[in-house]
C-alpha cells in the first residue's frame, strides 16, 4: 500500500479516533484506486460529486425521539440502542443479545418495529423514533400496558418493554389480531421467565376489545 500517497490523507482522520491508528486507517486497500480523494474537510469525491464523510470520530447528531429533539455527539459506530440508553437515559429498550435475535430492544422507527441494537444511530437521525417510554400518557398506562398488568404478563420484566412495543405495533396494524397475526407479530421477541402465557391472555383480551 502506498501509505505516502497524499491523496490518502483523510480529512476526517482526527486524533480523537483512538481505536485505530492513522496508519491502519490508511491501509484501506483499493480506496486509492476507487476514490480520488480531494481536499476539503468531511467530504470525498465520488463519481464527480462530493459526498460527505462522517467519522470515524464523533459526529454531531440529532434525533427525534417520542416527539422530542435530542442531540449528541457520537461516533458512527454507536447503535441507536446504545444512544437511547447511554445518552438519553431512555433505558426501556434493553440490550440483551445485541445481535437482532431477541427483541428486547424493540423500538418503532417511522412507526415500524425494529431492533434498535441493529440500527446505527447515525442512520436513525431525522426519523420518528418511538420508545416504550412514550406509551404512558399523563401518568396513565396505555390500555395495552394495562392488559399486561392485569394478565401478569411480566415476571423479571427485562423482555417486557420490547414485547409491549411489539404488541403495540401489532395492534396498530391489526386492532383485532387473529392467532396467525399474533403468531407472526410476536415472533421476534424472546422471554426467559416464561411470560408468554400472560402475554397471550393479554392479547386475547385486547383482540376482543380492540385496542
Amino acid at each position: 500500500m502506498d501509505d505516502d500517497d497524499p491523496n490518502l490523507k483523510h480529512p476526517s482522520d482526527k486524533q480523537d479516533n483512538s481505536g485505530v491508528s492513522r496508519r491502519d486507517f490508511l491501509k484501506i486497500s483499493g480506496i486509492s484506486v476507487a476514490v480520488p480523494l480531494v481536499a476539503g474537510p468531511q467530504a470525498v469525491m465520488a463519481a464527480g460529486q462530493q459526498v460527505p464523510v462522517y467519522g470515524p470520530g464523533k459526529v454531531p447528531m440529532e434525533f427525534t425521539i417520542n416527539g422530542k429533539v435530542h442531540k449528541a455527539s457520537l461516533e458512527p459506530r454507536v447503535t441507536l440502542l446504545d444512544a437511547l440508553r447511554d445518552q438519553f437515559e431512555l433505558t426501556g429498550a434493553k440490550r440483551v443479545c445485541d445481535r437482532a435475535e431477541c427483541g428486547s430492544c424493540t423500538v418503532l422507527v417511522e412507526n415500524k418495529p425494529v431492533y434498535a441494537c441493529s440500527v446505527l444511530a447515525i442512520e436513525a437521525q431525522h426519523k420518528a423514533i418511538t420508545t416504550v417510554e412514550s406509551l404512558m400518557q399523563a401518568g396513565k398506562l396505555h390500555p395495552l400496558q394495562q392488559a399486561f398488568v392485569e394478565n401478569d404478563a411480566s415476571q423479571c420484566g427485562f423482555c417486557t418493554p420490547g414485547f409491549v412495543v411489539a404488541c403495540k405495533s401489532l395492534l396498530d396494524k391489526h386492532p383485532h389480531p387473529t392467532p396467525e397475526d399474533i403468531r407472526r407479530g410476536l415472533s421476534g421477541n424472546l422471554c426467559r421467565c416464561g411470560t408468554y402465557a400472560g402475554i397471550r391472555q393479554a392479547m386475547a383480551q385486547l383482540s376482543q376489545k380492540g385496542a
Partner: peptide, 22 residues
C-alpha cells in the same frame, strides 16, 4: 465494533466509487 467512517451516497455511481477494490 471497530471505528469506521460513514458515507451515504445518493447515486449508484457514487456508491461504487466509494467502495474499495478489494
Amino acid at each position: 465494533m471497530r471505528p469506521f467512517e460513514y458515507v451515504s451516497p445518493t447515486t449508484k455511481a457514487q456508491a461504487v466509487s466509494l467502495l474499495g477494490a478489494s
